[in-house]
Design a protein around this nucleic acid. Structure first.
Lengths: 338, 338
DNA sequence: CGAAATTGTGGGAACGGTTGCGGGAATGTT
DNA sequence: AACATTCCCGCAACCGTTCCCACAATTTCG
């Protein structure tokens, strides 16, 4: 089976005309006798003709395929973004191929190389948490590939970017805890070099400052998003002379873990210790008490990234167009802080 | 930019040899003078030559791309499966393009048509909950496309399939509730025509029967997985003369919803009402009490589906090879039943 | 030493389409 | 009636690569 797919040559032969005429009938609307065109269309339908996109791609030097490189499709955040991208670009006839870096910078590089070989028309990328070297991306950009990055970006690269409102997210949550009467607020942060983490820490700092609360660096713990580090951070905080009465986190999974630990210790939430997260993961509304969390809209991030890409592809933007959308979120207040 | 990618002709011109020779140097190891080969390889690296897969695909009539059609990438179950597929096939140099049907049979059909146009080499499909007409799939199969389906399958189609252990899952959970001393066990099921739902209902029935508990069809409610229907079902059960003391569900989201409703009503879990789910969603371990649930291994389902596809592509299996893997799971017992 | 086998290379067809160019028939213009 | 114009259509080149075939040069063998 899978024998000889029908080609325009088959149609031409059956109709006793040349393949150019068939091609014109199927594409170009000019320079073709209406009756001929009808005949071709009819025959095409009859034989169930389907154009070979590979051949077309070879001519146009495009594949109408976009490479999407993400750390892990199993994270709800990325799944939602992928969904948004896919829905956006598929309406214009683009497909997306997914590659996962599994948070490995090497894998990220390999994936991009492989996608380049298969001649994708553009890249939508979210870097690994540990990606420090952006040479592979700069290379792509130098070659003129349409490029969009989101969430974890390389700020100096002149390409469209879509990010969450990192600063404002933690500014808002921190302020919320202060308004709830909390005086000493700890922060569970991410890796020091991660831009998104830095921005969120800044939001936290500025909120404290604006409310006249001194910044205490003992209250900030940097993690690599590991469960064990969350437990260790909590122990450290609780052993302080002046332990915190509220904890902000820059990611929900950490906040969820904290709530579990606090409950096990019999510490009352939110009265003895308030907790707030970032991301509004599905878990936030399931755990008890509900987790107050800054809700991002990852699906929208995907939609915007997809639109940026379409604009680049249609040359509406030049490839070095350096635009950035900061995707606003909103604080969802639940029992963990109220 | 993105000007004239380097081709073998460029290499040939620079070296003053023919493109056939260059091609041989880069692929075929025979019939080529070692020095010539070296020179070509060196020049290729120097010019940063990258083969054009489109051209290759045109010759081989393959794209080394697989179409993955799923209802919704945002569901953790599908995300995990996609991840498994991607990891499996990418090692052999295949890419996957994702299309979402959003549970719409029409969209499913359109997606498959579009993927066929772009000449994917095979399809890995999970049908919509409402897909009743499988003509589009049969058409694909008739054309000789490698085809693998998972989770929601069309049983009569002679293609490899990967499914969860639907029957055994509900058999095990039901039996577990019986062993916990429950005498009247209700079942929150899915749509009547959905095969997976039917199989799970059967598991429930057989477990009851083997333990001498009469089947009461008042205790079985068929839903379309809508939240409102869960609430309605619970109301109905509680208003019965002999209300149930345990509830099995065929999906975790329903069980989670039930737990929330029961807690709100002040009904003690598990003493007054035990609850069990299917799927071991992330939520199952977060909600309180923890939800007893039959854990599937969706990532493994993806891996197996990917392997089936690779076997089909390498002609190890004929396209009409009708094999089926039932992916065993295990009951995770938590507070909702213990 | 001449015929045959081997080896490295170039030419060109093929994959399935698009597209510029030119030719021939039909029509329009003087 | 002679010429210009239009309108369809076929020819052939092209996209980048593989691969079969032919051919020349070199080696092997009788």
């Amino acid at each position: 089976m899978k024998n000889h797919q029908v080609t325009i040559i088959d149609i031409a032969r059956e109709l006793g005309i040349s393949k150019s005429t068939v091609s014109r009938a199927l594409t170009n609307s000019t320079n073709i006798l209406p009756e001929t065109r009808e005949a071709v269309l009819k025959k095409a339908k009859e034989l169930d003709y389907q154009p070979n996109m590979l051949a077309l791609g070879l001519i146009r030097n495009e594949s109408r395929t976009l490479g999407v490189v993400i750390p892990d499709i199993q994270k709800p955040f990325f799944a939602a973004i992928v969904s948004g991208i896919q829905h956006t670009v598929s309406r214009i006839g683009y497909r997306i191929v997914i590659a996962q870096s599994d948070e490995s910078p090497l894998e990220e590089k390999e994936n991009i190389k492989a996608l380049m070989l298969s001649r994708v028309d553009g890249f939508i990328v979210c870097h690994t948490r540990d990606t420090k070297d952006f040479e592979h991306i700069k290379l792509l950009h130098g070659k003129g590939y349409p490029l969009v990055s989101f969430a974890r970006i390389c700020p100096e690269l002149p390409i469209p970017k879509v990010v969450e409102d990192d600063f404002n997210g933690l500014y808002t949550t921190t302020q919320h805890l202060i308004e709830q009467g909390k005086k000493r607020i700890a922060l569970l942060a991410g890796p020091r070099q991660l831009l998104a983490s830095k921005l969120r820490v800044n939001g936290y700092k500025v909120a404290l400052q604006q409310h006249g609360i001194p910044f205490d660096k003992e209250l900030v713990v940097h993690t690599k998003f590991l469960h064990d580090q969350v437990a260790a951070a909590l122990e450290r905080w609780l052993s302080l002379k002046h332990p915190p009465d509220g904890i902000c986190t820059i990611y929900d999974a950490g906040a969820v873990k904290l709530i579990e630990l606090l409950k096990r210790k019999g510490i009352k939430i939110p009265h003895e210790m308030a907790v707030a997260g970032f991301g509004d993961d599905p878990a936030a509304s399931i755990i008890e008490p509900g987790l107050t969390s800054y809700a991002q809209r990852p699906y929208e991030i995907g939609v915007i990234a997809g639109k940026y890409m379409l604009d680049l592809l249609s040359k509406k933007y030049p490839v070095h167009h350096s635009d950035m959308t900061i995707c606003k979120g909103a604080l969802v207040v639940r029992g963990s802080s109220r």
